[in-house]
Amino acid sequence: MTPRKPMTEPELLEEKARLFEELKDVLLREDRAAFRRLENILDNPDELKHKMSPVLEDRLQQLKVQFPEEYRSIVERMISEKLANSKEELLEAIYPIMGKLIKRYIAYQFELLREQIRRKTQWNWRNKLSRRIRALFTGVAEDEAILAEFQDYSIEDVFIIQKNSGLLIASANKDADDDIIAGMVTAIKAFAEDAFRRPNAELERINYDDLILLFEAFYSYYFVVVIKGNITAATHQTIHEKMNNFAARELTHGKVRDGQFSLALSIKLKSEFFDNQEK
């Protein structure tokens, strides 16, 4: 066996480096394999999705369970702030919707009334016979004919008035005195509501000779419809519906906030209540 030739200094250094590399290969083999696997997963979207989905799903489930507890106060605070900041707009939007709900209730009550009338009229055979004959010739149902006897009216004017100030916002038939009427009805309304102090109550109607003033209050404004003649619950309901539709469509908060008279709104109001006036 030939004795090994002693290594020179550079050879020794090279040998040390080689041995170190071998050692690294042995020690880091598993880690490097794991790293390559991870690299493959990260570079491949499908693989990544496959691996992450259960983790995300699990985290999502956890979040669903913990969300009310962990985030309730934050969400509540955000909602409270939003509500406080947009209270006026919110109320303005809600009023017509509330009006529709009330309208449905009125419609239901009106149906009950019709039923009562129908039952009452059945006993009187002479009336019944007379109405049946009329119904035969005119095509109008008996109960409708009874109601029509009370329904002789015309809308004389419609006002939209800012609730607090009494300033006129719109008038269907603009007249020089409308500002004064708006102020005065507001004063009367305020007086009645202040004097009798019924919680959540509003003045709804004033009868004067053959005129009826119907009041319909929204959040920051109210309608006054001046009617000449008699109106039935059905007519009241129709008018109510018109006011609600007009309010929901035209009276956004910004339009009524400053309480200034709007000619454009008045023209629309006139069109709503006077064009093709239905009875």
């Binding site: 100030s165 509501e193 202040d194």
Partner: peptide, 10 residues
């Protein structure tokens, strides 16, 4: 004076 009379005054 009824409170409502003051409302909306400039």
């Amino acid at each position: 004076i009824p409170n409502a009379y003051f409302l909306g005054a400039s």
